[in-house]
Computed example of a mutant assay.
Amino acid sequence: MAITPADDYLIHQTPYPIDRVATSDRNFYDRYFFNGYSPDGDIYFALAMGQYPNLGIADAAFSIVSDGRQRVVRASRRLGPDRMATTVGPIAVEILRPLHQLRVSVAPNPYGIQADLTFTARSLPVEEPHFFRLAGNVPVMDYTRMTQHGAWSGTITVDGRSYAVEATTWWGSRDHSWGIRPVGGRDPRGAPPQQPPQFFWNWAPLNFPDLCTLYTVSEHADGSRWHQSGAILTPYPHATITEADVAYHLTFQSGTRWLQTATITLTPPAGEPLQITFQPLYPFLMKGLGYGDPKWGHGMWVGEDVVDGTEYRLDTEEPLQNLHVQQVSRVRAGSRQGLGVFEIIVLGPHAPTGFRDLLDPAP
């Protein structure tokens, strides 16, 4: 344990310095996620950064899709004691004004991607209901997540080609989550799982000119829900949050577990339901941010101060080997038109959508 700059703030939650978290669980993490898209949806970018105090690792990745290619630069390092050091390799996150404005940047690197971007909140932050899930009697998820919609400004450069990002038209969202979920590879301790893997996950933050919405659903194989939340938000300067019940209807591309169409309904306690339809444009592969990557997965040790990059051709990626995607989508709610993502994982059986086995595809 060590005294670090964070200890100068009146934020302590335990009798220890900030570099020591309250639990010894190896899977404790603290993580940023950001995404953004051009007004026509043709360009999509995302950044993630995580700290894993009980593994001693920090990692980050920035990924951008354009012209059917998904480019990635990623980095990993030893965490060290200073939890406020939010730079990993060339990738950095800076809080300019908490809950209102943050800066993300990617310094020059061998993989041809640079960025200097400012996220300015369009909406109030939404504290989603607490996530808690057991595998048998073992907690595998126990965390909090905050989601917020925003506008982007700045520049992105890929192989010398620069994109001017303007806050009037480039929107996106971010989240910050912390707690316990599986990181750092499979924990070899304890009894093996009794049940085959199953995970049904939906998450959709959307931006419209005069509205922002959030939808999330997680269900067991029989369709019973272990987590759900919905929110309808009016943007600043008159920002409000209205919680909503959620429902969905999904169809899937033949031979895949990727969406063909989606309709979600947000029903507030008073007023009319808001029905939103999705036109998926293309998938963003979440492995580009470390989700499920066998080497660059979250909290995986790859060495001291390592920087790496890769590229995926979206038209050649196998959907059943890429279950975890964010499908960049045009969306419509009545006369409103907007943009956003529908993040989805359907692993194993799920009765409401007709999947019966580990990886059977849609007919």
Rank of each mutant, 00 (worst) to 15 (best):
residue 189 R to E: 06
residue 43 I to R: 04
residue 126 V to M: 12
residue 130 H to L: 10
residue 200 F to Q: 05
residue 5 P to G: 11
residue 178 W to A: 07
residue 193 P to H: 01
residue 203 W to R: 07
residue 336 R to T: 09
residue 217 V to Q: 13
residue 203 W to H: 01
residue 218 S to W: 07
residue 4 T to N: 02
residue 57 I to R: 05
residue 306 V to R: 10
residue 154 G to M: 01
residue 309 G to Y: 06
residue 340 G to F: 11
residue 196 P to W: 03
residue 119 F to C: 09
residue 182 P to Q: 05
residue 197 P to T: 00
residue 271 G to M: 13
residue 342 F to V: 13
residue 80 G to I: 12
residue 64 I to C: 07
residue 250 L to R: 02
residue 53 P to L: 04
residue 18 I to F: 14
residue 39 P to G: 06
residue 16 Y to T: 04
residue 173 S to Q: 12
residue 203 W to I: 02
residue 32 Y to A: 09
residue 229 S to P: 02
residue 290 G to T: 03
residue 107 A to M: 10
residue 276 I to K: 03
residue 334 G to N: 10
residue 331 V to S: 00
residue 170 W to P: 01
residue 185 G to V: 04
residue 353 T to P: 02
residue 290 G to S: 06
residue 165 V to Q: 07
residue 12 H to N: 01
residue 302 V to A: 04
residue 178 W to L: 10
residue 343 E to G: 01
residue 360 D to N: 13
residue 76 S to D: 03
residue 118 T to P: 03
residue 353 T to F: 12
residue 127 E to L: 15
residue 266 L to T: 08
residue 345 I to S: 12
residue 40 D to I: 09
residue 50 G to E: 05
residue 20 R to E: 15
residue 335 S to G: 02
residue 238 H to S: 14
residue 194 Q to L: 12
residue 342 F to E: 06
residue 193 P to L: 12
residue 327 Q to S: 10
residue 115 A to I: 08
residue 1 M to H: 10
residue 140 V to C: 02
residue 247 A to F: 11
residue 81 P to F: 06
residue 176 H to K: 11
residue 335 S to T: 15
residue 196 P to N: 07
residue 73 V to T: 09
residue 221 A to G: 13
residue 227 H to V: 04
residue 101 Q to H: 12
residue 125 P to Y: 12
residue 354 G to K: 08
residue 3 I to L: 11
residue 203 W to V: 03
residue 25 D to E: 11
residue 102 L to A: 09
residue 103 R to F: 10
residue 307 V to R: 04
residue 243 E to I: 04
residue 100 H to D: 01
residue 304 E to S: 08
residue 340 G to M: 11
residue 167 A to I: 08
residue 185 G to Q: 04
residue 205 P to Q: 03
residue 25 D to C: 07
residue 345 I to A: 12
residue 126 V to K: 14
residue 339 L to A: 06
residue 335 S to P: 10
residue 234 T to N: 10
residue 348 G to L: 13
residue 358 L to M: 14
residue 261 T to A: 11
residue 137 N to Y: 05
residue 161 R to K: 06
residue 360 D to P: 03
residue 358 L to I: 14
residue 145 R to E: 15
residue 252 F to M: 01
residue 134 L to F: 14
residue 266 L to S: 01
residue 126 V to Q: 10
residue 135 A to F: 10
residue 122 R to K: 04
residue 207 N to D: 15
residue 128 E to D: 10
residue 19 D to Y: 08
residue 63 S to D: 08
residue 281 L to E: 15
residue 32 Y to R: 01
residue 180 I to R: 06
residue 26 R to P: 05
residue 210 D to W: 04
residue 35 N to A: 12
residue 182 P to F: 13
residue 321 Q to G: 05
residue 170 W to K: 08
residue 300 M to L: 05
residue 4 T to P: 02
residue 123 S to Q: 04
residue 59 D to A: 14
residue 117 L to A: 00
residue 186 R to V: 15
residue 37 Y to N: 00
residue 22 A to H: 12
residue 59 D to K: 00
residue 361 P to F: 10
residue 28 F to Q: 00
residue 350 H to W: 13
residue 58 A to C: 09
residue 285 L to T: 07
residue 170 W to E: 02
residue 3 I to H: 03
residue 358 L to H: 05
residue 288 G to M: 14
residue 162 S to V: 15
residue 8 D to Q: 08
residue 5 P to W: 11
residue 100 H to K: 12
residue 24 S to G: 11
residue 15 P to E: 01
residue 171 W to F: 15
residue 352 P to Q: 09
residue 112 G to V: 05
residue 158 V to D: 00
